[in-house]
Design a protein around this nucleic acid. Sequence first.
DNA 1: TTGTACTTGCAACAGCGTTGCATTTGCATC
DNA 2: GATGCAAATGCAACGCTGTTGCAAGTACAA
Lengths: 149, 149
Amino acid sequence: MPELPPHHPPVGRSKPAERIRAAGARATPARIRVLELLTAAASPQSHHEIELALGADSLDRVTLYRVLDWLVEAGLAVKHVDERRVWRFALASGGEHGGHAHFRCDCCSRVYCLDVPAPQPPDLPRGFTLARAELDLTGRCAVCNRSVK
Amino acid sequence: MPELPPHHPPVGRSKPAERIRAAGARATPARIRVLELLTAAASPQSHHEIELALGADSLDRVTLYRVLDWLVEAGLAVKHVDERRVWRFALASGGEHGGHAHFRCDCCSRVYCLDVPAPQPPDLPRGFTLARAELDLTGRCAVCNRSVK
DNA sequence: TTGTACTTGCAACAGCGTTGCATTTGCATC
DNA sequence: GATGCAAATGCAACGCTGTTGCAAGTACAA
């Protein structure tokens, strides 16, 4: 069996299987596929979207839920509730997940992370202190606009 | 029929029934009770909590859902999803509800509607169309800042 | 290669919210 | 007051997202 390369890559960039084992769990196909998928995703994904992305030979519904929960528990992913009350999962990137806006398509529900010039803190009433500001946009995404035209 | 008092009280402080009619709907017992309850509530309430608060002769589950949705649609209340994926409703206190900026206090959970100069629609990617923009702010409100000082 | 604890798949379930439809009711009008 | 009708309510059934229990399968350490 070939040895690991002598220089261990930083956790954040190592291969999915390695990251999973490093978290103390078995590197199963299910976990590897989901982790790869989240790594490639440009925005937070819902359970349903991941199922679709996995395509034909998808995992069992429940297994996917458990894999996602494990990823969160292991600190490899983060989850949050979207405006439709569904969990969305994103790779846990070290930095703050702020400073950018989210666009949610009314049509397909996809969420896009936008690079916008930081929503500028408006004037708050006297005595208020701001901790976080998030800009949430909704509308139709390019994909849906194209298909319905 | 008695006329309205010559000096119209500010919308935010008029009686529930008046506020409901002012929004162009019928002042039914259901809406009045729920609006009163939200007015008295110190923090955003869930559907279930409101049901309990209404006590013995509660409304029908579905009616309560509809009343709450109507309050939001009418701009008298705001709703948001909590960490358990349930809707929580709060009185829309603050300025005229035209601007779509909300401030939620991390401490007391109260929700304030802010009058801000409409968040500037950022440049969307090609093909995207914007329907709504909402600015969600969190931090500490004046009340909490004062009391903890 | 083997044993075992960890994972998976399946079935059944639970919570929260929604839809359809017949009945009731607020309120504008007479 | 009485009356008519759109708006609002109550009830039943449903849907979606997520969870639990348990038997069968599998990664991996030894």
